[in-house]
């Protein structure tokens, strides 16, 4: 009986910690994502494989960005309950959304550091990395990569 109580207390504490810190972290992350997205909006992602013809051909370089994000305990539990009734898995929707947008931002930041103005043919990949108890997804990796076009210096400048 005492064991059960102890287990319930641990479960409740983890749930609460997960909920409070998870929500805080997520809100903070989304705020950072929005700010950086606004800053990097001028760097265009172009989803075509062939760049247009240039009279002054730019340099090209592969750029990548990746991030591993883990779910919090509260979301794991909610997702576990959701999987009983089916429907939209909201706890994971924000997880994969954050992973992907963060990966894109890191790719863009690398491109900006190189002085690029555009990224062509960007590809995205999302992998669930770690399976916890009962095969629940615990963390996902978002990867984004593409070819950055770095304008050549104008002759005479």
């Amino acid at each position: 009986m005492n064991d059960l109580k102890l287990n319930l207390v641990i479960f409740g504490t983890l749930l609460l910690i997960g909920f409070v810190f998870g929500q805080l972290a997520e809100r903070r992350h989304y705020r950072a994502i929005r700010e950086r997205e606004a800053k990097l909006r001028s760097l265009l992602l172009v989803q075509t494989r062939f760049p247009p013809m240039f009279t002054n051909p730019p340099r090209t370089q592969l750029v990548t960005g990746n991030v591993v994000i883990s779910v919090d305990y509260f979301k794991v539990v909610v997702a576990g309950l959701k999987s009983l009734v089916g429907g939209r898995m909201t706890p994971y929707e924000s997880l994969v959304d954050r992973a992907r947008r963060e990966a894109i931002l890191r790719m863009k930041e690398q491109a900006r550091r190189l002085g690029a103005t555009m990224i062509f043919n960007s590809k995205f990949e999302l992998v669930s990395l770690y399976k916890g108890a009962q095969n629940t997804v615990q963390s996902v990796e978002g990867l984004a990569y593409g070819t950055a076009l770095i304008p050549a210096r104008q002759p005479g400048s």
Binding site: L14, I17, G18, F21, G22, A25, E26, H29, T64, N66, V67, V68, I69, S70, V71, D72, Y73, K75, V76, E102, L129, Y130, G132, Q138, S139, E141, L143
Partner: peptide, 23 residues
């Protein structure tokens, strides 16, 4: 560390770096 981070959620920096190095 990642096990601990799994309670509160967020980025697992160690894994991010590990995967980047591996790639």
């Amino acid at each position: 560390m990642a096990g601990l981070k799994n309670v509160v959620g967020g980025e697992l920096k160690g894994y991010t770096e590990l995967l980047q190095e591996s790639r």
